[in-house]
Nucleic acid binder design. Structure first.
Length: 936
RNA sequence: GCUUGCGUGGCGGAACUGGUAGACGCGCACGACUCAAAAUCGUGUGGUUUAUACCAUGUGGGUUCGAUUCCCACCGCGAGCACCA
């Protein structure tokens, strides 16, 4: 088979005859919209990962066409981007030419692959005919209050005079030059995507997407339900709100923290604290986001000198500032409950702030008529031997730490010291820490009573080995033993085990439990208490229920040249005017020099004639920032449907017919960027009556990464393991490349490249080719292949539909192997098989189809159907198990009754061996499958 | 740390709602064709074992007549998020 000649021939013919051109106005057939994430046309060209995703949609598109669908399968270019801009800066040429050249390279490669795109729908985001509508959408977002200019903190480098992205900052200094970077408030264009947070979460329920991607979007949006609580500042008329998801712990709030940027900080700070606060604020401002969020960093903060009033008990609690509270989340202020929050705990410990426990974990089972007691559990640790002191109660309770009941007028700590001395004799001990209290229910054998105790845990360390005499009660019968960690972990008693856990985990108690020290919440669990507290706060007008999102505004401006100009002008009087529809597109001006301005503003500032204009007789200045790369890609799926329309985004009737996208394939790296932005823009356009569906992409699939043969990501690091699709096409042919990539494994998985595997793919296609050149194909009615043929049609159709290309191919191999074993390959099967193989290997199947006497393309031939009756088996292999182990197999008629199955099973010699002399306990018969005989 | 996905032969990977683990391919071995090689066409191929049999789906438990599949704990790998109150 001369694949390069065949490929050349069919590429030309498909192009000349416009075989894959879609008449979008033909509504007579059902529609299918198969879409790939369009690429940035880089100079490097296509890589192996693109091939996999693009082939997958192409296979489905080709099958759907044959199944009688009107298929829209377009391709275009996400052509605004940095490489073109850098090229322009370096050469002084307009990025347009560079972009166009890359597009041609890319397009040539896609054509080489035999992808059945309708190129009459081609679009590019950098084309003014296209970005006219990107600007139009922006203008409408602005008019509807969803695009706005806001003051927000950015990373500012004074020396470079520019805003920097997080990844351009290293250790708080600029990547280039190492100049200091500070946080500064600046005017920025943003899109108010948080307004759509709720419906973006809800919409996920209605679409067929990978669960992991949905979850990622949910996490990204980060919805949390809680309460807003108002705290008054003592001796002033000021107050501030905090957001909390744990308003049930309000009685345990022992301080408040404001973020350093909080508006109230300056007004409430006392004279004595002013200097420290100012200094701390300065340090925070000099830090980048990266540094501020660095993990395992020790907590820092400064006391403002002011006090807040806890609204539930009117207690005065200190107000601190700390950078562990983010200005951008919630209200920028928190109430701190160190007993029940890890971060607050750490902070309180460091600065010696009170820790009040308001929730107790409950262990054991609650009983009626319990006797209440207070007690202790004491852990005594010896550093020298790395052992713990335990009491071994034998079968009367197993191994325990030291425990005991608190006497009247005795403190918990005194009780612990006393119990250790009485039960073990050790007195030379030192308190290490107190652990959270636990609410425990248990039954005491020696007293025959149920107890409910509040147990306080203590950790001591041994400082001396001297012992006094033990002082035991009559019923105390145990051995005092020092044991290692392993033995401790085997303690089964719930109370002692839990106490040990608190000791090991060393922190706040964040789980559920029963409220204590909380007045009207006492006795309630977490959720009950949250509800009750919210009701209480609302009743007393001190707070209310509140939902918060992590999702932030989408920063929509870049100080770059190669992007869509933002279509607004700034009037001399400070107002903003958005361009009218007829003024669009606002086309990028040509520049002599595309490099960025020294003061950090957009290169467009240099186009003075373009920038400075008169509007309504007033001096005005155009906005010079451009839109981010994600702008043009947020709606392109709508434009493919009607790409040359200059009256609107696309004809409404066409949109209604073609949306949503039925199959969307692309890499998982866009899970929260492009895929979230697109959903938001589509929803916005839906509300405006333009987009016909709430969600743009009905079914989404991510292709995995194609790894190098060494199992490592292809790229600069191991260039010797990188695969260039061009080389594969030249050496093995496009059909082989497509076939191999579809056979590698599941589409979503990452898979290593294997040259041997490519050769195997080629071998199979050659094997098929030889079969069609042999004299085996005869126009006769031969039944030998009937069953396997129908099975193959069924399997391939279903697997293509569900994107399980690897197993579809495996079935085609099974079929061809079967054909090789037969003398005759009936012509009707030979013809139908070509159709099954066509979506994977379009070039050779077109050629063979022609060789078998057809002058029209195979692309629109009717997809094979199967006859379920022909697949039905008359017999099957019945499995016979004894005690779940296969002991025999028997070919039986499909209609064999359960009784007959059982009877036949018992006659199999090997089965007999295994059941003879044993009694049959039970026989499980699963019709059409197996018999399992359970014996004893 | 949190969220999520994944651990099956020498390798890529199959196995539907629990029911013959390892389909198909790669590799390897053997045979046919050939003077020979390549290509091609067959046959075999998880491990131990002479067969019977036993052991095998990351590890350890559990549910079940029966678990790669369901549940619990742990280990390892990948992805995303990361002081989100």
């Amino acid at each position: 088979m001369n694949f390069s000649e065949i490929e050349k021939k069919w590429k030309e013919r498909w192009k000349k005859e416009e075989v894959f051109k879609t008449d979008v106005w033909d509504f007579s057939k059902p529609k299918f919209y198969a879409l790939d994430m369009f690429p940035y046309p880089s100079g490097v060209g296509l890589h192996a990962g693109h091939v996999e995703g693009y082939t997958a949609t192409d296979v489905v598109a080709r099958m759907k066409r044959m199944q009688g669908y009107n298929v829209l399968h377009p391709m275009g270019w996400d052509s605004f981007g940095l490489p073109a801009e850098q090229y322009a800066i370096k050469t002084g040429n307009h990025p347009d030419g560079f972009t166009e050249k890359n597009i041609q390279t890319f397009k040539g490669q896609l054509l080489d692959l035999g992808l059945s795109y309708d190129w009459s729908k081609e679009l590019a985001t950098s084309d003014p005919k296209y970005y006219k509508w990107t600007q139009w959408i922006f203008a409408n977002l602005y008019k509807d209050g969803l695009a706005k200019l806001v003051d927000m903190p950015v990373n500012w480098c004074e020396e470079l005079g520019t805003v920097l992205a997080n990844d351009e900052i290293i250790d708080g200094k600029s990547e280039r030059g190492g100049y200091p970077v500070i946080r500064k408030n600046m005017k920025q264009w943003v899109i108010d995507i948080p307004k759509y947070a709720e419906e973006l979460i809800d919409g996920l329920e209605t679409i067929d997407w990978p669960e992991s991607t949905k979850e990622m979007q949910r996490n990204w949006i980060g919805k949390s339900i809680g309460a807003l609580v108002k705290f008054k500042v003592k001796d002033t008329d000021k107050s501030f709100d905090v957001f909390t998801t744990r308003c049930d712990t309000l009685f345990g709030a022992t301080y408040c923290v404001l973020s350093p940027e909080h508006v109230l900080v300056d007004t409430i700070t006392t004279k004595e604290q002013k200097k420290d606060i100012e200094e701390y604020k300065k340090i925070c401002a000099s830090k980048s986001d990266m540094e501020r969020t660095e993990l395992n960093k020790e907590k820092t903060g400064v006391f403002t000198g002011a006090y807040a009033i806890n609204p539930v008990n009117n207690k005065e609690i200190p107000i601190w500032i700390s950078d562990y509270v983010l200005a951008t989340y919630g209200t920028g202020a928190i109430m701190a409950v160190p007993a029940h929050d890890e971060r607050d705990y750490e902070f309180a410990l460091k600065f010696g702030i009170d820790i009040i426990q308001v929730l107790e974990e409950e262990t054991g089972t609650k009983q009626e008529n319990e006797t209440k007691k207070n007690s202790i559990v004491a852990i005594l640790y010896d550093e020298e031997t790395d052992k713990y002191l335990t009491l071994n109660w034998g079968n009367k309770g197993g191994r325990l730490f030291i425990g005991g009941t608190i006497k009247e007028n005795e403190s918990a700590i005194d009780c612990a010291i006393r119990e250790i001395a009485e039960e073990t004799g050790y007195t030379e001990i030192e308190l290490v820490k107190e652990l959270p209290k636990i609410n425990h229910h248990y039954y005491a054998f020696n007293k025959d009573k149920y107890f409910n105790i509040e147990s306080t845990g203590f950790v001591f360390k041994l400082v001396g080995k001297n012992r006094q005499d033990q002082n035991l009660d009559d019923d105390e019968d145990f051995k005092v033993e020092w044991v290692e960690k392993d033995a401790i972990e085997q303690i089964t008693d719930e109370l002692h085990h839990k106490t040990y856990e608190y000791y090991v985990n060393d922190g706040a108690m964040v789980g559920d439990g029963i409220h204590i020290n909380s007045e009207f919440l006492n006795g309630l669990n977490k959720n009950e208490a949250i509800d009750k507290m919210i009701a209480w706060l609302e009743e007393h007008k001190l707070g209310k229920k509140q939902v918060n999102y992590r999702l932030r505004e989408w920063i929509f401006a870049r100080q770059r040249y190669w992007g869509e100009p933002i279509p607004v002008v700034h009037m001399e009087d400070g107002t903003i005017k958005v361009l009218k529809d007829e003024e669009l597109p606002l086309v990028l001006p040509e520049l002599k020099d595309y490099s960025p301005c020294k003061n950090g503003t957009s290169p467009l500032e240099k186009a003075t004639d373009w920038v400075n204009i008169k509007v309504d007789g007033q001096n005005a200045k155009r906005e010079t920032s451009t839109m981010p790369g994600s702008a043009g890609s947020s709606w392109y799926f709508l434009r493919y449907i009607d790409p040359n329309n200059d009256k609107e985004i696309a004809d409404k009737k066409l949109l209604k017919h073609w949306m949503p996208v039925d199959l969307y394939v692309g890499g998982p790296e866009h899970a929260v960027g492009h895929l979230l932005y697109s959903r938001m823009w589509n929803r916005y356009l839906y509300k405006k009556g333009i987009a016909p569906t709430e969600e743009p992409f009905q079914k989404l699939v991510h292709q995995g990464m194609v790894l190098g043969a060494n199992g490592i990501k292809m790229g600069k690091r191991y260039p010797e393991f990188s695969i260039n699709p061009n080389d594969i096409i030249r050496e093995y042919g496009a059909d082989t490349l497509r076939f191999y990539e579809m056979f590698m494994g599941p589409i979503e998985a990452d898979k290593p490249w294997s040259t041997k595997g490519v050769e195997g793919a080629k071998r199979f296609l050659d094997r098929v080719w030889r079969l069609y050149e042999s004299d085996k194909i005869k126009d006769v009615d031969d039944k030998s292949l009937e069953k396997i043929y129908h099975q193959t049609v069924k399997k391939v159709t279903e697997d293509f539909e569900s994107l399980h290309f690897n197993t579809a191919i495996s079935q085609m191999m099974i079929f061809i192997n079967a054909v090789y074993k037969e003398e005759v390959f009936p012509k009707k099967y030979a013809l139908e098989f070509l159709k099954l193989l066509n979506p994977i290997a379009p070039f050779m199947t077109e050629e063979l189809w022609e060789k078998m006497g057809h002058d029209k393309t195979i692309a629109y031939e009717t997809w094979p159907t199967y006859d379920a009756d022909k697949i039905k088996e008359e017999t099957y292999t019945m499995i016979v198990q004894v005690n779940g182990k296969v002991r025999g197999k028997l070919e039986v008629d499909t209609n064999t009754s359960k009784d007959k199955m059982e009877e036949l099973s018992k006659e199999i010699p090997n089965v007999k061996n295994h059941i003879d002399g044993k009694s049959i306990v039970k026989v499980i018969v699963v019709p059409k499958k197996l018999v399992n005989i359970v014996v004893k």
